[in-house]
Design a protein around this nucleic acid. Structure first.
Lengths: 326, 326
DNA sequence: CAATATTCCGGAAACGATTCCAGACTGGCC
DNA sequence: GGCCAGTCTGGAATCGTTTCCGGAATATTG
């Protein structure tokens, strides 16, 4: 069927081992044979079977990416930057979407583990302990979450929230609401923590509104609760939720930002396209992926070292039309 | 390092071959040994190395997905449905983003070919001939494009365009513009063809406006050309381009749909969230992925058969606020 | 020219799993 | 008890590649 190293060897009139050397360590063979092998490989269209190679070298050349929901525009951005950086180092990407189900994460990782050299876990929803069980077994870098004994890349939510709250405070708001994301999301807890600190230090009231799915529907579902609350501004777990709020508020005829100001988180593409534009805390999505890959490559190279590097990337408030004076 | 079949065999006190049988064909071993093997595997946390298995069975259990740009929200939707369907049949997904560069497609496919059982090519940008070179070698299904000798899944653009044009015609529009997508995109040619047929049969004038990148920026870049044209309505290659137009039109103070109506294509999530909502031709994105996987599985099972199944999925005009009477 | 050092190449083993084949054991039956 | 059929199991070969080891050929040196 497919062309193997033996076919190349036969055509070039050398042994398989020489073919391997000619292609991998060109300076270990005579220029003449090297040329013969190369042209034979070219003629037959030979590409080594990376799986077979991986069997013996222990390196597959693949990295696994696990994320909760590809339909959330935040993740494709991250994946894209992972791809770009991975390809630069000749790695291919295995992608898995868990559909926000914590229960499938661990089995998925286990099933994929032998086919990849390491994992990038984006916003994993499983419990710390379940994930920690992999410590030392498979190189892993966690994105958008911090877990002991794993390197991680996170955004500085606390500072982002501080910027957002400062902005709202300056506009005269004193009571704000937070629409929380999934209970299993570390980012949600992190953002809430940052928000609480910020509102406390500015002496503002904070109303928490139930946990919702991190989707547009999640936002629309609680928009009326926000209206009914005493808050004059609302911060959402992420942009999708914020957009859901925005949509429902407009449908109810509530003036944004006149009556209620809305702030999102992530700065996905949509945020700049809706009307009014969504004020949001931007995360450097391309950075997350790139830094994640860098960390993972280091970890895979160094092997043993605990390598609990923690990169915290800056956030930046992007002010658009959805926030205004109280 | 990792636990192999031998470790399980040793712990269970049987040979590796028996372990294999106990796990793969449970009825070929005595219940007692089967139980011993299972518990040994469970205790050690044994998961077979799929790459090694693939070497001998010829099946990797992976399918490769190649697409031009994950940042276009259309593709994540498709990928997600591919994932879902693939997992149902115990397949994992290899993802590759080509960054709209036709030149990297073929090398990418070749490099991945040995690691997957088949490919789903989403909107491939490479030339027909380059792709045809794979015919018979690797099972492949093409999405959003038709290529001889490959099964394909496409949307019925012609009908979608007919619906859109009928809608605009009924609103009184007689001159429409089309903002074309990438020259290398089959969908672009297909949509343009459908549009031409529709405008001709309705006796309407069609202005074509240059090829742009299939992004928001592509749309904003030519919005002023649209304004300067005699058209009272514009159809865009896809929703991103339409949103770019919409944005720039609003920035220039052009009334939509009062002065110009805008129609997109794809019905991505954003389309329903902007203001005014974007009238667009919806494609069943989840269907594309699902049907694509189904076709690929059939193709991989049947092997030889030409299998040039061509599924054309229906399109549906979604009318929102961006279109109105002339 | 002989002895040594160096370069280059082929053979064999290995990676982890599966599968075929043959042998060992069990049970049934006469 | 002996024979046959059937069930169950272990050993060996295999997939495609890499790597180690030893031998042959070449180059270097005295």
């Amino acid at each position: 069927m497919a062309v193997t190293i033996k076919d190349v060897a036969r055509l070039a009139g050398v042994s398989p081992s020489s073919v391997c050397r000619a292609l991998a360590n060109p300076d270990q063979v005579r220029p003449e044979t090297r040329e013969r092998v190369h042209s034979a490989a070219r003629n037959l269209g030979y590409y080594p079977n990376r799986a077979a190679r991986g069997l013996i070298t222990g390196r597959t050349g693949n990295i696994g990416v696990v994320l909760p929901d590809l339909a959330n525009p935040f993740f494709p951005s991250v994946v894209k930057s992972i791809q770009t950086q991975a390809r630069r180092f000749d790695y291919a990407v295995f992608l898995s979407d868990t559909d926000e189900d914590p229960a499938v994460e661990v089995p998925l990782i286990r099933a994929l583990a032998k086919q990849v050299d390491g994992f990038l876990l984006c916003s994993p929803r499983a419990g710390d302990d379940e994930i920690k069980a992999f410590a030392g077994q498979t190189p892993m870098v966690v994105l958008n979450r911090r877990i002991n004994s794993f390197p991680s890349v996170t955004a500085d939510s606390a500072d982002g929230m501080r910027q957002a709250v400062a902005h709202l405070h300056a506009l005269g708001h004193r009571r704000v609401a937070y629409v929380a994301g999934p209970r299993t999301s570390w980012s949600n807890r992190d953002r809430l923590r940052g928000l609480k600190n910020a509102t406390t230090s500015y002496g503002m009231d904070l109303v928490e509104i139930g946990n919702v799915a991190p989707t547009v529907e999640g936002g629309t579902a609680v928009a009326d609760l926000v209206i009914a609350s005493p808050a004059t501004a609302v911060l959402a777990y992420n942009d999708l939720v914020a957009l859901g709020l925005l949509n429902r508020l407009q449908a109810r005829g509530v003036d944004v930002p006149g009556r209620i100001s809305v702030v999102g988180f992530d700065d996905i593409l949509l945020a700049g396209l809706v009307n009014p534009g969504l004020t949001t805390v931007a995360i450097a999505k391309e950075h997350i992926g790139r830094v994640g890959v860098e960390l993972l490559l280091e970890l895979m190279a160094d092997g043993e070292r605990p390598a609990t590097a923690r990169r915290v990337l800056p956030t930046q408030l992007i002010v658009r039309g959805s926030t205004g004076p109280r």
